[in-house]
Design a protein around this nucleic acid. Sequence first.
DNA 1: CATGAATGAGTATTCATTCAT
DNA 2: TATGAATGAATACTCATTCAT
Lengths: 223, 223, 223, 223
Amino acid sequence: MKPARVTAQRRPGRPRDEALAARRCEEILETATRMFATRGYQDMDVQVAADALRVGKGTVYRYFPTKRELFLAAVDRAMRLLKDHVEREAATRSEPLDRVEAAVRAYLAFFEAHPEFVELLILERAEFKDRKKPTYFVHRDANLGQWQDLFGALIAQGTVRDVPVARITTVLGDLLYGTMFTNFFARRAGSEAQADDILDVVLHGILTPAGQRRRAGRGGRSK
Amino acid sequence: MKPARVTAQRRPGRPRDEALAARRCEEILETATRMFATRGYQDMDVQVAADALRVGKGTVYRYFPTKRELFLAAVDRAMRLLKDHVEREAATRSEPLDRVEAAVRAYLAFFEAHPEFVELLILERAEFKDRKKPTYFVHRDANLGQWQDLFGALIAQGTVRDVPVARITTVLGDLLYGTMFTNFFARRAGSEAQADDILDVVLHGILTPAGQRRRAGRGGRSK
Amino acid sequence: MKPARVTAQRRPGRPRDEALAARRCEEILETATRMFATRGYQDMDVQVAADALRVGKGTVYRYFPTKRELFLAAVDRAMRLLKDHVEREAATRSEPLDRVEAAVRAYLAFFEAHPEFVELLILERAEFKDRKKPTYFVHRDANLGQWQDLFGALIAQGTVRDVPVARITTVLGDLLYGTMFTNFFARRAGSEAQADDILDVVLHGILTPAGQRRRAGRGGRSK
Amino acid sequence: MKPARVTAQRRPGRPRDEALAARRCEEILETATRMFATRGYQDMDVQVAADALRVGKGTVYRYFPTKRELFLAAVDRAMRLLKDHVEREAATRSEPLDRVEAAVRAYLAFFEAHPEFVELLILERAEFKDRKKPTYFVHRDANLGQWQDLFGALIAQGTVRDVPVARITTVLGDLLYGTMFTNFFARRAGSEAQADDILDVVLHGILTPAGQRRRAGRGGRSK
DNA sequence: CATGAATGAGTATTCATTCAT
DNA sequence: TATGAATGAATACTCATTCAT
């Protein structure tokens, strides 16, 4: 006879253990992420994931009603972790340009440490073409504003050339995205050195002063 | 679909019509590309593709022994078409920097005109993780040398800063790759303006001279 | 089945509330009957029934150890209610022939008012083919004797032709059974008029000329 | 759009064997009927049926796209066979009343010989409650008219009492239906004697005194 | 050569039942 | 006693591939 939970009268029956549920939910997502990344969407068998988790298959389905929902929850979790990581790192700096640099390094380091999340991004697009917008871009768009504000401030203080901020965020965003994917596809590593390269090119450009003059003289198309 | 009975002098038995075979092979790949891109790898039924081609399913299997081979042939074809397109455009210019610019524009225009090829690249990675290297990177690596030579020449002539050419090709390659994917995922269009933006940032950098001095003074990490 | 705890003086511990148990048992059967009839045996989820009853699934299992037993108890209840209804109606008459007529009307009216019970009869046969004899026929056979006695008396008093009573009860039983099913399947209604039709046809077959005259003289209902 | 089967040039590829297809379709239905009747709808595994037919499961699905369609086709076939049988037997007689009698005997004999068809009727109702009208009643309604005409003629010729023909066909139809089901449920046999009983009861209800005398004079079978 | 009939391995999901609380 | 979290057996249908014609 268990001592009655002193909270007056509780409902009859087995009470729900909220903490356990949350922990298990996280465990399932973590394992599922690993298995989706390893085997692909179709070949990731919910049965195998359940076995790895030491729970019954039905239990997984209690938490995520379909394989699809399980997958999308895993992608969403990955994006939340990315955002947390990048913002935490950027927050360690106060100078705007330093924040940009820290964010670039954090982004690349995050995906280097978690290649399984890159795989999820690929899989999402490959298997769920019907969805309006991939999770990555939903998150990207949600975070875009703060970075544009940052570059706006850098232009105002005369550190960055006065070009449309959208040009900067777009090019830098695409560059990071492409680097992250290529690292994964081509099995490259060394995100620290990559960050150096990227920052060198983006911040300074590749042309010499002479080269810049020459190009301007020829009427290159860039405004 | 009846082969033209060429009258010349026939050898006994039905002569193999090489031209017909090549044409049909191309037709199959084109249709398959469209259908893979539209429906994904798993959902693209060979039966449906055969129906669209107005041939029997067995005929498709005569040209490509498995669905997998059919898919990989389609990816390979896409990469060949990309290479042809970029090189043809680059060849219209003689100045090295102009060739780079033309190549950048051609690359983006190609994938804007052929989003189905982007889809194939995604699908390849998602469905064939076991392959050593995705087709895209096989082609990328094969073409890398000529672009490195080009940038080497630009450095020698003083147009481009004396940084390792690998840094330039890597950053530019990743940026184009990321832009192409993002265009597709986020349904962006307007590759001409994008090329302008990319060339502006990569060639000139985003920092003002003052900003560059300030960063150098702070001992920024880039060498 | 459990011997009633004689109430006199209470023993320590929570007393079993027999009345509550019986009431809940009846509630469960009533709800289960409705849901089995609406959704079929396989599609009737114990979970859904428990939800409808506002109790936990485990509680249902406390009363009925398996879904199968729950179903069979529901069928059995239906047959008990049928018998009660028919006998109660028949008991309102004293003349043997009137009792027969009342029973026929009561039978048809009962199933017209409770189509869910017809559904249970169907489902029992469809899902439990292994059982030796469907519940309906167990009850039918148990009640057969009293009706045969009744017709025996009618023959003895010269009201009914001297044919084997089994012929009468069988034909009448099959006719009622077929009418009840057909009403249900074909969504016919109007059991009163049907009873008129049935009695007209059957009585004018089973009555002797003398019996017909006697009944007409008493103002029997058949037109 | 069917190409005239001019033997000269046939389309390339393996020609479809129409006769084989029709035969196999019938075989599948026959086997499926037996297995549905034996095991019930849910427990009838298409795999097992395919094994019994010595074909692959996919082949069954080529002919019937779903298990449901297979089942409904089996029911429909049963009804067609019933109709054929009853009409063939009725057609052996010329006198209207003899046709009725022959039809009653044929109906009961058919279901006595094919209890599996009775099972199908049960299963259809149990598993497909959503369908507007069970197959049996679709067929029943389609054939009703001819029997009403027959009874109309019998009334006109003074053999049958002048009651609404619908009353006669309904009561007789329900009686046959109930008898057939009860035979099956209660495992009764002896449809010949049952037909005697039914005809005795029903005819002596529907015949005028003149009609009874006429039939007795012709040596009608009812005792 | 071309066809399409035949095949059967492969899989997400449901739900009756159990039992810890 | 009541509850509902956990379990895992059970199953229709698809589609890549083969091969008789």
